[in-house]
Amino acid sequence: MMSTLEQAQALEREDDPLKIGGRTLRSRLISGTGGFASMELMAQALIASGSQIATVALRRIQAPKGGAGERGSLVDVLAQAGVEVLPNTAGCHTARDAVLTAKLAREAFGTDWVKLEVIGDQDTLMPDAPELLAAAEELVDEGFVVLPYTTDDPVLARRLQDVGCAAVMPLGAPIGSGMGIRNPYNLTLIREAVSVPVVLDAGIGTASDAAIAMELGCDAVMVASAISRAADPVKMARAMKDAVHAGRLARLAGRIPRRLHATASTPEEGLAEL
């Protein structure tokens, strides 16, 4: 007979690993690389998060400072931390720009994966749905593994799946807002609407938000500002790792239904008459 500890370890093994675009990922937490006070802090936080992949943006090369080696340092630091690059199209406002940026990222980093962002509004940084869908379709046709940042609209999520996206990344709240998951019911609807992995993207403020996302049935969580702008990013990265794990286990375990009234956990039978 298994010991209690062996049973607990077996339970963790029962979880199917996350698969996106035909690849198996060991971590259900994807990290951003923006907003850290230093590259060293970023590397420490990424390691503490246990993330296998981290997003990077593409920007113009600035005038020479310390030679090509220094400019390549972000890629080098990520490689040293054992983290794979997931290029994003952050800052793109049209399908055309996003498609070209994805192609440039493929050339720069040698990966077909792209976190597709097509921003429609500078105040909310919410996706431009028609441009997003057009860009996703074109990139899938070009052989990319497309992970689109999308709204929490289940219909759009399904349309993105239908054009061949490898996952969908609905927002919980606006990017960098730290407002958590504003519409958990929509995430539940997205979970029902698509069969590709659902990766909660944007809005996470603290660890409990990540746990809620996983409890709602998300397959993974993307965290950027909530780690990089925390007072102690390394500690928060570790908290996010544990929260994603706890939320996943809770989802698999199956929560009890919510009830208005109390339900005693101790039997009434055998109660003393005092």
């Binding site: 951003g32 907003g35 920007r59 090369i61 390549g72 290029p87």
Partner: peptide
Amino acid sequence: VEALTAMQGG
């Protein structure tokens, strides 16, 4: 000509 490289980003 646009020459781009990796920058820290979400």
